[in-house]
Amino acid sequence: MKDNTTIPTPLANRVLAVRREAAQTTASGIYLPDSHKEKPSMADVKAVGPDVKDIAVGDTIVFKEYALTELNVGGTNYIVLKSDEVLATI
């Protein structure tokens, strides 16, 4: 059995990332309660599958919100998506 504290390895053209935290306040400084925060469509790449060419570990990606799978491993919330669902790297 594998150790659950390791980062999962994505297969084929999949990208494993950790979603960036939503903003706690607006640009003008107004506090946002959890019920009004939008899930950000940006994430930090933690691992890539062997068929991924243009995305590297450490990149920040912008992705399509509906095109992902969420999972929790060792207390960390990851998202997994196909590399062609990534819109841009930052």
Rank of each mutant, 00 (worst) to 15 (best):
I55V: 13
K2G: 09
P10T: 02
A27Q: 02
N77V: 09
A56Q: 15
V73A: 12
E65M: 15
L32Y: 06
L68K: 11
R14F: 11
L32A: 01
V80P: 03
T5E: 07
V52Y: 02
D59I: 05
K64Q: 10
E85L: 06
R14H: 15
M1K: 14
P40H: 02
V52H: 06
D51T: 12
V48P: 03
P33H: 06
T76E: 07
V15Q: 08
M42L: 10
L16W: 06
T9N: 11
K2H: 07
I61K: 02
G74F: 06
V80Q: 11
A88F: 03
I7S: 01
L11T: 13
P8H: 11
L71Y: 08
P40K: 12
A27T: 08
D34A: 12
V73N: 13
P40W: 01
V80D: 04
V18T: 08
H36G: 06
Y66E: 14
V48H: 02
K37E: 01
R19G: 04
K82D: 15
V48G: 01
T6D: 03
T25Q: 14
I7R: 02
V62W: 10
V80R: 07
M42F: 11
R20M: 15
K82H: 13
T5W: 03
R14G: 07
V80Y: 03
T69H: 08
V15I: 10
K39C: 02
K37S: 04
L81P: 01
L81G: 01
L68I: 11
S41C: 15
V52W: 07
V48A: 00
A43V: 04
T6E: 00
K37A: 00
I79G: 00
